[in-house]
Nucleic acid binder design. Structure first.
Length: 758
DNA sequence: ACAATGGGT
């Protein structure tokens, strides 16, 4: 089989997410000119050696010695398993610690556990031994090795965890919940007892829970109330290679926490320190990034675990696919008509593509001869309800082929039973920051090609894969191209720009001071689980706090409190789904007018923010009087998305809790006098402001870009001297979304802006 | 003159 060559991308996100902005748990802070104390985890120092193994990365049959441990990853070639024979065969290690099966289903489950690569040979013993010996262990496990489900159980079944909880962090919600369900079954205990999970708005665990799967964002939140994470005796950071800001932040904090806790343990005998339980850290990664994590933790031991149980056959499309949705559809039918039973998983970049493919698939499947099995199409993406996402795990009905259309939500750590074929469009979406200096100054969400490790992860979801990306681009050419680009744009500068920009925003909001130290205001802001500009707006709505904490960069406070209103508006803005729905079925002209009329009904002359407030107030009126049915009808009639409102309500409850903790009155209301609402929003959105230009467009106050008001805004046809907006979206032009008119005077008074204009 | 949204709290 030929070795497919895959494009190596410069990932802007890696620069943005570089490990440089981290604040240590001890309050240390970022200095742009200082080198970080710890080894840089970002890709800036990407060694040449990494590229070479990657070329072999997609070969389907990795041969790796089971349980083979290497200190500090010195011999990289061994990882490609050149010709090392596998030493399977000795199925030791399952004797004494295995639970007694209590049913035939459980017997089967335990047999499956024993068949996992990680359970074979001496792997389990070696693993437990190493983790016992070392404070930090880096585990490089290939897809399908079983590390995510088994390692926590091994830790539990040995005495490593003591009486504490084992936390296993995941980058995705569905992964955390479905893993907990799976491992619960393997432990033969009800979900939420011995094995549980915690994701936002949904948790199932008790104080007795020993293994807790959770999203990394969740544990980062817990860090604020429990800075040493004393609840946990072992923290397993899974999918560490995903490298988001959160995982980097978590790893940086864990290093500090471990130093404190384990030092206290050493000093215990001398009676110096309080009794702190020591912390074990296990970092699990599916890619060769393991070396970086090892270096970060003072050359922690790296353990390699062999991968998948069944070889994956990868088919590439013969040529580059431009219309990848169409290509995915044609590939699906090739599989459906020619191939034996087995469910299909299709990876697509976003909701829009998923919906469009769903439409065409369901159209064509109804026209198939009845001799074919029927097709059950199941979409899966984060902004869909958890219940709908959970449907993909249901068993496939008889004489049916399940076809799952997923974003990268399904990329890691989930196993969908029955999936035998994966069709990968090779695309994903990612937020990228477009630096001010290159005409931007805002985030973009663009479709791009996936990375090599993503491709491997996706392939790992099944036994067979059809990949629609083109393998024809010569690898060497791309490296050259990337180097040129890096040179042209001055890579070092680029890597720092977003950081500077983020710091500037925080400074503008008063969250950090000139030395980049978190201010008391910033500390309060961080407690709210919303974007900084929104938490700043909430705090501005309470007269007492903003006057007491106001620094020189903050204008005088509004006289009247309006926290109640701000909580409503910011929770709706934070919701992941849109408040107003467009019914874009067949009648395009009439539907757009009906959406418009729905908005006009609640439209507030000042713009979208108070329109949101009007809508929620109207909805609350209806729900307090009417039945559930009437409420639904009302939403339908006014093109209001009830899911956005229910999600906003849950977010609002969280925000209310934070307010109470801070001693703010969440009921503080300005009633019908809505002036203070916009004034408060202005505090947070000061960087998101623009002035009217003679030609009717707007120009950023804090950037050079010309922007237009988004056609979905109530302000679309209005010409006002100045606006604030929630965000910019970049499509053919730069559009401002969530727009309100604001008095020009507010900004003239703002020191940060007047300074700039002077 | 025309609307593009991955993942996480």
């Amino acid at each position: 089989m030929s070795v497919p060559q895959k494009r190596k991308h410069i990932r802007t996100a890696d620069f943005r997410h570089g490990a440089k902005l981290h604040k240590g748990a001890n309050g240390s802070h970022y200095h742009p000119h200082k080198k970080p104390r710890y080894v840089d985890l970002s890709d800036d120092d990407l060694p040449q050696s990494r590229k070479k193994p990657e070329m072999n990365g997609t070969t389907s049959h990795h041969k790796m010695v089971n349980g083979h441990t290497l200190k500090n990853a010195k011999s990289k070639h061994e990882r490609n398993g050149q010709a090392s024979p596998s030493v399977n065969g000795i199925s030791a290690g399952e004797g004494s610690t295995t639970k007694k099966p209590n049913s035939s289903a459980n017997t089967q489950l335990q047999e499956q556990r024993r068949q996992l690569p990680i359970a074979k040979g001496m792997c389990r013993e070696a693993l437990v031994e190493e983790i016992k010996k070392n404070d930090v262990t880096v585990l490089l496990g290939e897809t399908g090795s079983g590390k995510t489900t088994q390692v926590p159980q091994y830790l539990l079944e040995s005495d490593i965890a003591g009486t504490g909880t084992i936390a296993v962090t995941q980058p995705r919600r569905v992964a955390a919940t479905s893993l907990a369900a799976r491992v619960s079954k393997e432990q033969a205990t009800p979900l939420g007892t011995r094995v549980g999970y915690a994701v936002r708005f949904d948790e199932k665990y008790t104080l007795q829970t020993r293994i807790k799967y959770m999203t990394d964002g969740m544990i980062v939140r817990e860090l604020m109330s429990d800075p040493l994470l004393l609840k946990y005796s072992v923290i397993v950071v899974d999918e560490a290679h995903e490298r988001t800001l959160r995982t980097d932040l978590l790893l940086a904090n864990l290093k500090t926490i471990q130093r404190k806790r384990n030092a206290a343990e050493d000093a215990k005998g001398k009676g110096k320190a309080d009794k702190l339980n020591p912390l074990k850290i296990v970092v699990m990664s599916a890619t060769l990034d393991a070396e970086k994590f090892s270096r970060f933790f003072h050359n922690a031991k790296i353990i390699y675990v062999k991968g998948r149980q069944h070889p994956v056959t990868i088919y590439h499309s013969a040529e580059s696919q431009i219309d990848y949705v169409d290509a995915a559809m044609r590939t699906f039918f090739q599989i459906h008509i020619d191939q034996p039973p087995g469910d299909v998983l299709i990876f697509l970049p976003g909701q829009e593509d998923i919906e469009s493919l769903q439409k065409s698939l369901s159209f064509f499947t109804t026209h198939l001869p009845t001799t074919n099995p029927s097709v059950l199409i199941l979409p899966m993406y984060a902004s869909q309800s958890p219940t709908s996402n959970a449907k993909v795990f249901d068993p496939t009905p008889p004489n049916t082929r399940k076809c799952i259309l997923a974003t990268n939500i399904a990329e890691t750590s989930i196993t969908i039973p029955g999936v035998k074929y994966v069709i990968d469009t090779g695309k994903c979406k990612e937020k990228q920051y477009l630096a001010r200096d290159s005409g931007g100054g805002f985030d973009t969400l663009l479709t791009r090609d996936i990375t090599k490790s993503s491709a491997m992860q996706r392939a790992g979801r099944a036994g067979r894969e059809v990949r629609l990306s083109s393998p024809l681009i010569p690898f060497s050419l791309l490296i050259k191209h990337d180097t040129q680009r890096a040179k042209a744009e001055n890579i070092n500068l680029i890597s720092h720009l977003p950081v500077y920009s983020a710091l500037k925003t925080l400074w503008l909001l008063g969250a950090i001071d000139k030395d980049q130290k978190l201010t008391p205001l910033g500390r309060q802001m961080a407690l709210f689980p919303v974007e900084p500009h929104l938490s700043r707006s909430i705090l501005a709505s309470s007269p007492t706090t903003s006057s007491s904490s106001s620094s020189s960069s903050v204008p005088p406070t509004s006289s009247q409190g309006c926290t109640k209103e701000l909580l409503t508006i910011t929770s709706v803005i934070s919701s992941s789904s849109k408040l107003f729905l467009d019914i874009s079925t067949s009648t395009s002209t009439s539907s757009s007018s009906s959406t418009a009329s729905a908005r006009i009904k609640f439209k507030h002359p000042s713009g979208d923010h108070l329109t949101i407030l009007n809508t929620v107030r109207a909805y609350d009126d209806i729900s307090s009087q009417g039945s559930k049915h009437e409420r639904k009808e009302w939403c339908k009639k006014h093109c209001v998305n009830e899911r956005a409102l229910t999600e906003a309500k849950k977010i609002r409850e969280q925000l209310v809790d934070v307010c109470r903790k801070l001693g703010l009155d969440p009921e503080l209301s300005c009633g019908e006098n809505e002036g203070p609402v916009l004034a408060s929003l202005g505090y947070g959105l000061v960087g998101n402001s623009a002035f009217l230009q003679p030609d009717g467009s707007y120009k950023q106050t804090m950037g050079h870009s010309i922007i237009k008001i988004h056609p979905g805004s109530t302000m679309m046809n209005e010409k006002v001297p100045a606006i604030i907006y929630d965000e910019l979206v970049y499509t053919n032009q730069i559009y401002a979304r969530g727009v309100s008119a604001i008095g020009k005077n507010f900004f003239v008074k703002h020191p940060a802006l007047s300074q700039r204009q002077a």
